[in-house]
């Protein structure tokens, strides 16, 4: 399958919103990295698509933003990542889940 090798992956939120992001951004999350590159043939690995029935759209969006911010940070561009106080708790749970 060519999809698994593609440069982008699709993340789907609980509400069904699809986020298409670069693979290299997605693998900032260890969990995603494993899902997308596991040696077994899980559906995620084969399709390059991950469903998150327990993560809401705004949180997943924030998470995706974080992935890109993190890449920039790692390459030396140190900007601040703003998190709205009201989503802090959920975001932390998502982070724990995604091992980010």
């Amino acid at each position: 399958m060519t999809v698994s090798k593609s440069e982008t992956v699709k993340l789907v939120s609980a509400e069904g919103f699809e986020f298409i992001i670069d693979r290299k951004a997605a693998v900032v999350s260890n969990t995603l990295k494993n899902m997308l590159s596991s040696s077994g043939n899980f559906t995620e690995t084969e399709l390059g698509e991950v469903n998150f029935p327990e993560i809401s759209t705004p949180i997943l969006e924030k998470v995706c933003q974080y992935f890109y911010w993190s890449l920039q940070f790692a390459s030396g561009k140190e900007t601040e990542f703003v998190i709205e106080p009201e989503m802090t708790l959920e975001l932390m749970m998502a982070a724990n889940y995604l091992h980010t």
């Binding site: 969990t31 494993n34 899902m35 596991s38 077994g40 043939n41 899980f42 559906t43 995620e44 690995t45 084969e46 991950v50 469903n51 998150f52 029935p53 327990e54 889940y97």
Partner: peptide, 16 residues
Amino acid sequence: IYNHNASGLSFEELYR
């Protein structure tokens, strides 16, 4: 997995 039938499994679901 042991029976080499993993292709239908969802990583995310199992992980979750």
